[in-house]
Simulated assay, not measured.
Amino acid sequence: MINRPDVSIISIHGKTPQIDDSAFIAPGCRIIGDVRIGAGASIWYNCVIRAEVNYVEIGARSNIQDGSSIHCDGPLPGLPEGFPTIIGEDALVGHNCMIHGCIIKDRGFTGLSATVMNGAVIESDAMLAAGAMLTQGKIVPSGQLWAGSPARYVRALSSEEITGMQVGVAHYVENAKAHRQAIEQG
Rank of each mutant, 00 (worst) to 15 (best):
29 C>T: 10
125 D>H: 08
138 K>T: 03
173 V>E: 02
12 I>W: 04
62 S>C: 09
73 D>V: 13
116 V>W: 00
142 S>I: 02
155 R>S: 08
8 S>Q: 14
109 F>E: 07
155 R>M: 07
69 S>V: 15
107 R>Y: 00
95 H>L: 01
174 E>V: 05
170 A>G: 01
36 R>I: 14
5 P>R: 13
8 S>C: 11
108 G>Y: 06
126 A>V: 10
13 H>R: 14
158 S>D: 01
178 A>I: 14
119 G>T: 07
47 C>A: 13
109 F>V: 13
123 E>F: 12
42 S>A: 15
108 G>V: 00
20 D>C: 12
63 N>C: 13
86 I>A: 07
88 G>H: 04
60 A>N: 14
186 G>F: 00
118 N>F: 06
33 G>E: 09
14 G>E: 00
129 A>Q: 08
112 L>N: 09
148 G>N: 08
38 G>S: 12
48 V>P: 06
147 A>Y: 03
70 I>C: 00
141 P>T: 03
101 G>D: 01
174 E>N: 14
79 L>C: 08
152 R>N: 10
168 G>P: 04
4 R>H: 11
42 S>T: 08
17 P>S: 08
76 L>D: 00
74 G>P: 03
136 Q>H: 11
59 G>I: 06
57 E>A: 14
155 R>A: 08
140 V>R: 02
176 A>C: 13
15 K>F: 02
57 E>P: 02
178 A>K: 15
153 Y>H: 15
43 I>T: 11
35 V>G: 09
3 N>S: 14
164 G>S: 11
92 L>R: 02
64 I>L: 01
117 M>I: 02
50 R>C: 02
